[in-house]
Structure formats: structure tokens, C-alpha cells
Nucleic acid binder design. Structure first.
Lengths: 191, 191
DNA sequence: AGTCTAACTGTCCGATCGGTCAGGACAACA
DNA sequence: TGTTGTCCTGACCGATCGGACAGTTAGACT
């Protein structure tokens, strides 16, 4: 706690590496090098590789818990849309962590922090599924979650432009909110 | 080529491991063990770990090239919907490979086969973007691709039921086609 | 019988892995 | 001037990594 800046920078670097090449693919050496430290120094701050992962994703898990808790069970559509907005902002702020436990959640299930994230997503899915129990709506839910999580980290891959102008970022946020909201919205009873 | 069954089984096992724990996280030893072979035997069939990866995803890349090629540039909506159907079937058949080069495409860009997959996705994005150049529609495109690729491999994580009944699978396919089609459909000019 | 080849394996190698440990640098406090 | 505690490091450990290589088995062909 005494020099939080270096510790936070280390968590950020570790998160980037873990989400980029996977937990097993990222080495403590490469993380340390990217952070400008020695491997020993990393292990001084965090007892193990798993502890580093847990510390790196913990803020995101706390935020996720808060978002899931705020689901408007009996709310109207405006309230539901506000919930989606909170959810998207959570995704935007914790892109890397979300990408990590979305894509490696099952294989890292032994790590308590990841397990907690899995439980949260499970509960989230169940909560939403209570309102939309059909396969179609489960698909829409999954596409919304996975698609949003994906586009925030990997989309830059095969798009032309490099930098995301602040104005463009705002547009992207609005578009993402719109898209996810339409996916999570209760569809008309049937056609 | 003389005993294709074992070679194909090896590719399938390798693909599962690569998409599950990442290319760097999967070891030749674990792949060999899962396939019931020795590590040496794996390296007899494929010159290197990268060669194994390339061979494992090559069929998926070929199929992707075919799908991208079949994009209906001047087609009507029915033709466009048929294209989406082909695309979803491609995703369903090559789930693991898609998940692999969607989530690890950038970091594995040095491998020629992955590079080809990246180029194809890039061209795919450009092709679709020609019709839908706005940020909103790019987002919708990304959510559709990423969401579909995601739900096919990771959704089982936080859903209750275990097995996907054949009838449920058909329903899921239909729902996925419907969802992606609506995302990729040209939206009304503006509201 | 001998020959050839495909499929497979165990052994070995250098490099790298996660992790331990003893100690150095340095500011704060006595 | 010690002394203490934080931050950081290089050296080292056993295990595992990707890969090279020599050799074995078994079936097909002559």
C-alpha cells in the first residue's frame, strides 16, 4: 500500500498479458520485463502467479458484483435501459479482466477469484433468464455478453483505423449500449 | 495421410487444448497425453507445435475463405439472410478454430496460417463495412461476430443444463441465425 | 528369407518455467 | 551511529518446456 502506483501498474501489465496470451501462456518473466521490474520483485509483491492474477481481476469482480446486484427486477423499460448502460460502462472500464474470465473462466476455475467471477456470471445469467427463459433469448443474452466483451479487446484487430478518437469512443459507447440494450430487451411475446 | 483417423483425432485434441488454455498455455506433452500418444509421436506427425496449430486450423480457414467469398455484394435481403445462415453454419462446424483465431489472432500473427485467418477476417470486415460504414454498424458487426464465436464455446460455462439436446441444438442454431441476421441487417437509414 | 517404410517411442538437450533465498540499496527513525 | 523496514535484485533450484535423435516395432513388398 505504501507505493500503490507501482503495484497498480504491475496489476495492469499483468492483466494485459494474461488476457492477451492466456494465464498459462504469460510468464512472470515477461510480465516483470513489461513492468520494468525483475521477476523476483514481482514475486515480492505477490506471493505467486495466481495471487497476481487474483489481485489484478479483483476490482473488476467487485464492480461486476455491484452491477449484477443492481439489476432492476421489477423495473420498467427505462430502468432496464439504465441497467444496460451501467453494464456497458462496467465492460468499458474492466475490458481486460472481463475478457480474461470470459474466455478462460472455466480452465481457471480453481482460482477462488475466478470462481467468484464465474458464480457472478452464472447468477447474472439466471437472473436475466428468469425474465427470458427461451433458448432464443438465452442466445441473445450470450451474444450480447460475449460480443460486447469481445469487441472491446479484439475488434481493433481487423479494423482499419488505429487510434480511437475520444469522440469516436463516445459514439462507440452509445452504439454498444444501443446494440446490447436491443439484444437484452424482452422481445415481443412472439410473432 | 496413410492413417488419417489418428492424425485428425490429434488435430481435434490439439484444437481443443489450444482454444481452451491458449497456444502458449497448451503443452505438447498434455496434447499427446490427451490423444493417447507420446510427445515424440506428435512431433513425428507435425514438425513443430506451430505446424500442429497450422494443420489444426487450416480446414477452418479454408471454410472461412469460402464463406467470405460468397458474400452477396448486390444481393437482396433473402440472399443476405442465406449468407448469414452459411456463416453461422461455418461457426458451428469450426467453433474451436474460430474461437482460437478470434481470441488469439493478434498474438499468433507470426504464424502464416493465423495471419491468413486474420487477413480473411479483415477483408470480411471491410466487405461488410462497405455497406455499413458507420461506427454503430461496425459495433453491431463486431458484436455479432464475437458474440456468435463466444457463445459457441463458452456459454456452457454459466448455464444450468449440461447436454445440448439435438432438438435444442437446432433451436439454438435457428436462434443464432436470427440474432446475427438482425445484427448484420442494414438498419433503417436513421431514426 | 531380406528389405523397406510408416508409426511410434524413450532418452537426451538447452532453455525457460514458477518459486525460494540471501542479501543490497536506501530512506526513516533512534 | 545503529537499526529497522520497504523495495528490489541475482543466484539458484527442481520441474517442465519444445525439440533432436537413435532406435524399435510391425506390416507390405520382393
Amino acid at each position: 500500500m505504501s507505493s500503490p502506483s507501482s503495484a497498480l501498474a504491475l496489476q495492469r501489465v499483468a492483466l494485459e498479458q494474461f488476457s492477451l496470451v492466456g494465464f498459462g501462456g504469460a510468464s512472470l518473466g515477461s510480465i516483470a520485463q513489461a513492468a520494468g521490474l525483475s521477476k523476483s520483485s514481482v514475486l515480492y509483491h505477490y506471493a505467486s502467479k495466481e495471487a497476481l492474477l487474483a489481485a489484478a481481476i479483483e476490482p473488476a469482480i467487485d464492480a461486476l458484483a455491484q452491477v449484477v446486484e443492481s439489476y432492476p427486477y421489477g423495473g420498467d423499460r427505462a430502468e432496464h435501459d439504465r441497467f444496460v448502460e451501467r453494464f456497458i460502462d462496467f465492460l468499458l472500464e474492466h475490458r481486460l479482466a472481463v475478457h480474461l474470465f470470459v474466455n478462460q473462466g472455466q480452465v481457471l476455475g480453481t482460482i477462488p477469484a475466478v470462481q467468484r467471477a464465474n458464480d457472478l456470471m452464472h447468477r447474472f445469467s439466471e437472473t436475466v433468464a428468469e425474465r427470458m427463459p427461451s433458448i432464443e433469448d438465452r442466445i441473445r443474452f450470450g451474444v450480447a455478453i460475449g460480443g460486447a466483451a469481445y469487441i472491446l479487446v479484439a475488434a481493433a484487430n481487423w479494423s482499419d483505423e488505429g487510434e480511437p478518437t475520444p469522440a469516436e469512443a463516445a459514439d462507440a459507447r452509445a452504439a454498444l449500449i444501443d446494440t446490447v440494450a436491443s439484444l437484452l430487451r424482452h422481445p415481443e411475446p412472439a410473432h
